[in-house]
């Protein structure tokens, strides 16, 4: 009798131990997988840095592309990307923020506005290459803008508009109602309230979203290839109607070649691209951090 109850205690004890062992195994397994995933991504970056450091110097930043790896550089791609980003910012930020303001501050919750909201979240999921095709048919061929900077910028603006709108709406939503009520109570109109109170209060959040959207635009390759940003450009664009190349296109061009030297050049260009992205993301994080306090 005593013996059997002892046994029962032992088995339930063992059962409990097994359950706890399973739990601790599971938690270590999850931790291991997480750090393996991060390590894998770190390996990617490490690989790029090792390959790319060789060609990375002032000459690389100030030369045009060339058939000879030693003379090749990314000046035209870098300038093209700067042009592109400035144009995209000019087009997409005003429209995106205006849309967000309209949806959050002005619109009534009717069917049209619900349709707009649903539509924006679906547009955010459309593959970038589809935007490229639309840009090709609409801007390059339809409006006869040719394979120019402005075609690329318009296409990319369509691509990142949903991102800007969604981020700006989130930022505007965090502005407390009491600020609006105070403004209305003092006799301000809707626009005066939105412009002078809601917009400044949500500015850091909007800025963060805009920076992240622009950094997405910097890295997008497929739409620009569709638009036909030239791969060999040995001049700098003077205006929005000029043809262009951009960093991701140049990288693609170099990666797609079979020679090892060009792969190294691609790695160098990737380092420059990632550095630009990192600076932008760091700015976004700093802004977010400052406003959280």
């Amino acid at each position: 009798m005593n013996q059997s109850s002892d046994n029962a205690l032992n088995t339930s004890d063992r059962h409990l131990q097994r359950r706890h062992r399973k739990a601790s195994l599971f938690s270590s397994f999850c931790a291991l997988i997480t750090f393996m995933g991060v390590a894998l991504l770190a390996l990617l970056l490490y690989q790029v840095c090792v390959d790319g450091i060789k060609w990375l110097d002032i000459q690389f930043l100030t030369s045009f592309p060339s058939r000879f790896p030693a003379r090749a550089g990314i000046l035209s791609a870098l300038v093209g990307t700067l042009w592109l980003i400035s144009l995209i910012a000019l087009i997409a930020i005003p429209i995106g923020v205006a849309t967000a303001l309209y949806l959050e501050e002005f619109s009534k919750k009717n069917r049209l506005n619900r349709l707009i909201e649903l539509n924006i979240s679906n547009l955010a999921g459309v593959p970038s290459i589809v935007y490229g095709i639309i840009g090709l048919a609409l801007f390059v061929r339809g409006l006869n803008l040719e394979r120019s900077l402005i075609s690329g910028a318009l296409t990319m603006s369509l691509l990142i508009l949903p991102v800007i709108i969604i981020a700006s709406r989130e930022a505007i939503k965090t502005v407390p109602m009491s600020i609006r009520h105070a403004a209305f109570a003092l006799g301000a109109t809707r626009w005066q309230t939105a412009w002078a109170h809601v917009l400044p209060a949500s500015f850091p959040g909007i800025l963060t979203g805009v920076i992240l959207a622009l950094s997405r635009a910097i890295g997008e390759t497929a739409p620009l290839i569709m638009i036909g940003g030239l791969t060999y450009v040995a001049f700098l664009p003077d205006g929005p109607m000029d043809s262009f190349t951009a960093m991701p296109i140049q990288i693609y061009n170099w990666v797609a070649r079979p020679q090892h030297e060009f792969h190294q050049l691609a790695a160098s260009a990737i380092i420059v691209l990632l550095a630009v992205l990192l600076i932008m993301n760091a700015a976004a994080i700093v802004i977010r951090h400052k406003t959280e306090r």
């Binding site: 991504l41 690989q47 950094s215 997008e220 497929a222 990666v255 790695a267 990737i270 992205l277």
Partner: peptide, 16 residues
Amino acid sequence: LAGIPTVVYGYFALTF
């Protein structure tokens, strides 16, 4: 890491 351009992953595929 989610913001790394996809062309970089293409490079990673071919060279590594």
